[in-house]
């Protein structure tokens, strides 16, 4: 058996990590200021207008967006790995990233050709299209699944992967029609980014992600049962169809909102749950909340790296998560730290 840490210690460690990373994220940047710096300036009677603007309008919303996106992706990763009974399942396994990106690309091309306004009643069309296409992806999965007597994990998985491949062709198609000078903007979207200004994206993420995450957390006990044995779970009174529906819809909704706001940021939903599982064990009552906190901290950290790596401008966060996450995942594989999976 793997070493396990106690529930209290795991939650405490994850919370401490969050606090430290968020504080660092607020304090570190091109301008040397943070909450403490601001307080000192204010007591010295200096003007804090500029500093406050940087802190509250730039760094805080950005930090919150990164935290919410990372937390949501990590939690959905946990849930989908149990629901699809597959260690490689991620929030994007069901084709949500592909579909969302296809939506964003479509909107970008339509806007460029003047067929679509940039925003309708304040809603940016790129985000709206990303979300609608992701929703269409989920709807198609349900249509396929409902044609079967029982949607087995394998059917869900294959449907999602297929839709993802189709969406990628759609992306190629929009790229083909796009004007070459627009391709840079479009591809930048695919790399993900939390370089937001102001609180509108934060509000969208908070409304979209927080309630759904809380609801998803209540499914922990049922996911334990489902991951152990679908039939025993049914025998113990878990309504399998309802569980699959609930987790699929909540997970897809959370992912759809995140993809539409910050783009398809990869690897968070894969690396974080597996790493956390090595410490907490596979019980979802502990694994899910600790993954949620750790995922938020992880993406804040990646955003910090994206801002601080000394190159021109900043590196898109999606590249950072994959560059950190990919090798780390390979290390886990080599070291046999998939101890909590029957692989």
């Amino acid at each position: 058996m793997t070493r396990r840490v106690s529930a209290g210690h795991a939650v405490l460690a994850a919370t401490a990590l969050c606090v430290i990373v968020i504080a660092a994220s607020l304090s570190i940047g091109p301008e040397p200021l943070g909450p403490l710096h601001l307080l000192r300036q204010w007591r010295a009677g200096e003007s804090i207008e500029d500093a406050a603007y940087i802190l509250f309008s730039l760094r805080l919303p950005r930090t919150l967006a990164a935290f919410l996106a990372g937390a949501g992706l990590a939690l959905v990763g946990c849930a989908f790995q149990a629901l699809l009974r597959n260690p490689l399942a991620t929030p994007y396994t069901l084709g949500l990233a592909g579909a969302g990106s296809f939506g964003a690309y479509t909107a970008l091309v339509l806007i460029d050709f003047g067929r679509l306004p940039y925003s309708v009643i304040g809603v940016p069309m790129v985000q709206a299209f990303a979300f609608l296409f992701a929703a269409a992806d989920v709807l198609l999965i349900f249509l396929v699944a409902s044609r079967r007597a029982r949607p087995t994990p394998a059917v869900l998985l294959l449907t999602g992967v297929t839709l993802g491949i189709i969406a990628n062709s759609g992306i190629m198609l929009t790229r083909y029609f796009a004007r070459p000078e627009r391709l840079i903007d479009m591809d930048r979207w695919l790399m993900g980014g939390v370089d937001i200004v102001g609180y509108r994206p934060v509000a969208v993420l908070a409304i979209g992600v927080v309630p759904a995450c809380l609801w998803l957390l209540t499914q922990a006990g049922k996911l334990d049962q489902f991951g152990f044995s679908e039939e025993m779970a049914a025998g113990r009174g878990v309504n399998i169809t309802r569980l699959q529906l609930t987790v699929l819809l909540l997970g897809s909704f959370i992912t759809g909102v995140i993809v539409s706001e910050v783009g398809p940021i990869g690897f968070v939903g894969l690396v974080v749950p597996h790493t956390v599982r090595a410490f907490t064990g596979a019980g979802h009552r502990l694994l899910m909340p600790v993954s949620l906190l750790s995922g938020g901290a992880f993406l804040c950290l990646c955003d910090l790296a994206a801002r601080k790596v000394p190159v021109a401008g900043e590196i898109p966060i999606g590249i950072i998560t994959t560059l950190i996450g990919g090798p780390f995942f390979l290390y886990l594989l080599v070291r046999g730290r998939f101890a909590d999976w029957e692989t």
Partner: peptide
Amino acid sequence: AFLPQGVQPVFLL
């Protein structure tokens, strides 16, 4: 209580 055949857990417990 029901004990099915061929229980194959995906998590290590």
